[in-house]
Amino acid sequence: TEYKLVVVGAGGVGKSALTIQLIQNHFVDEYDPTIEDSYRKQVVIDGETCLLDILDTAGQEEYSAMRDQYMRTGEGFLCVFAINNTKSFEDIHQYREQIKRVKDSDDVPMVLVGNKCDLAARTVESRQAQDLARSYGIPYIETSAKTRQGVEDAFYTLVREIRQH
């Protein structure tokens, strides 16, 4: 089974770092803004072998026109913010609204991801993020692309959301 996953969120929150940590098991430290990259990885989730087709997208506003296209083809979405960047957390709402509009559905598989949880300088409390996820009816997972904490959990949870859909 193949799953088309799309990673969305503001610029600099760590979308590529999360994806590369999942696929290649290493942490990319330097920031190089993405336009669009796709990665494929075969994994076993709950005993089922599946192929993850992951689209890593641009957070930069100037590429926002490309969003409709990949939102149409994606089956599930990782909505990523950084726990030390309140603005990126506030941006999640717009991504969710755009996904709902493009998919013409209120019920699209999504996982809210709070990345950079290895950093002490948190400005978005776990509780705020949990409340937001609960209001959307989606899971919330904290990750660190640096330490790998929660990385597999985030992507695998999204696959489970798609399966249950």
Rank of each mutant, 00 (worst) to 15 (best):
T1A: 04
T1D: 04
E2M: 05
E2Q: 05
Y3T: 12
L5I: 01
V6P: 06
V6T: 08
V7H: 00
V7I: 04
V7P: 02
V8H: 06
V8W: 08
V8P: 01
V8R: 05
A10K: 15
G12M: 15
G12H: 15
G14P: 00
G14C: 00
S16E: 00
S16K: 02
A17S: 00
A17Q: 12
L18V: 05
L18K: 10
L18I: 04
Q21W: 15
I23N: 15
I23C: 08
I23F: 14
Q24L: 01
Q24M: 02
N25V: 04
F27E: 10
F27S: 03
V28Q: 11
V28M: 06
V28L: 04
D29H: 06
D29A: 03
E30G: 03
E30P: 09
E30V: 03
E30Y: 00
D32P: 02
P33I: 05
P33A: 14
I35V: 10
I35N: 14
E36C: 03
S38N: 02
S38W: 00
S38Y: 00
Y39D: 08
Y39I: 00
K41W: 05
K41H: 07
K41N: 14
K41F: 08
V43L: 08
V44A: 04
I45N: 06
G47K: 06
E48K: 00
E48M: 04
E48I: 01
T49Q: 09
C50V: 02
C50T: 07
C50G: 01
C50A: 03
L51D: 11
L51H: 12
L52W: 05
L52I: 11
D53P: 05
I54C: 06
L55F: 07
L55P: 01
D56E: 03
D56I: 00
D56Q: 04
T57M: 14
T57V: 11
A58F: 08
A58Y: 13
A58H: 13
A58D: 11
A58V: 04
G59M: 06
G59K: 13
G59E: 03
Q60S: 15
E62R: 15
Y63D: 15
Y63I: 10
Y63E: 14
S64L: 06
A65R: 08
A65N: 07
M66Y: 11
R67I: 14
R67F: 14
D68A: 06
D68I: 05
Q69G: 09
Q69Y: 05
Q69M: 08
Y70S: 02
Y70W: 04
M71N: 05
M71G: 04
M71S: 04
R72W: 04
G74P: 12
E75M: 10
E75Q: 10
E75T: 09
G76L: 12
G76C: 12
F77E: 05
C79A: 08
V80N: 00
V80W: 00
V80P: 02
N84A: 10
N84H: 11
N84G: 12
N85F: 04
T86H: 12
T86N: 02
K87V: 00
F89K: 01
F89S: 05
F89P: 01
F89C: 02
E90Q: 06
D91N: 10
I92C: 05
H93G: 11
H93Y: 11
Q94I: 02
Y95Q: 01
Y95G: 08
R96A: 07
R96C: 09
R96S: 05
R96G: 03
R96N: 00
E97R: 03
E97F: 08
E97C: 07
Q98P: 02
Q98V: 08
I99A: 04
K100L: 04
R101A: 04
V102H: 07
K103R: 02
K103P: 03
K103F: 13
K103C: 10
D104C: 05
D104H: 02
D104A: 08
D104P: 05
S105H: 07
D106S: 08
D106W: 03
D106F: 06
D107P: 05
D107T: 04
D107Q: 10
V108P: 08
V108W: 01
V108G: 04
P109N: 04
P109Q: 04
M110K: 00
M110Q: 01
M110I: 04
V111C: 08
G114L: 12
G114W: 06
K116F: 15
K116N: 15
C117P: 08
C117Q: 11
C117N: 09
C117H: 06
C117S: 06
C117I: 09
L119N: 15
L119C: 13
L119I: 13
A120Y: 10
A120M: 11
A121P: 13
A121F: 09
A121R: 10
A121G: 14
V124Q: 11
E125K: 11
E125M: 12
S126T: 11
R127N: 10
Q128E: 13
Q130A: 09
Q130T: 12
Q130H: 03
L132V: 08
L132W: 13
L132A: 12
A133Q: 04
A133N: 11
A133S: 12
A133I: 10
R134A: 10
R134N: 11
S135W: 12
S135V: 11
S135T: 11
S135Y: 09
Y136A: 09
Y136N: 04
G137T: 12
G137M: 10
G137P: 07
P139V: 09
I141R: 11
E142I: 09
T143E: 13
K146E: 15
K146G: 15
G150L: 13
V151Y: 15
V151D: 14
V151L: 15
D153Q: 01
D153K: 10
A154N: 06
A154P: 13
A154L: 15
F155E: 00
F155G: 10
Y156T: 14
Y156M: 10
T157S: 11
T157I: 11
T157M: 13
L158P: 09
L158A: 06
V159D: 04
R160Q: 12
I162D: 10
R163F: 08
R163Q: 13
R163S: 08
H165C: 14
H165E: 13
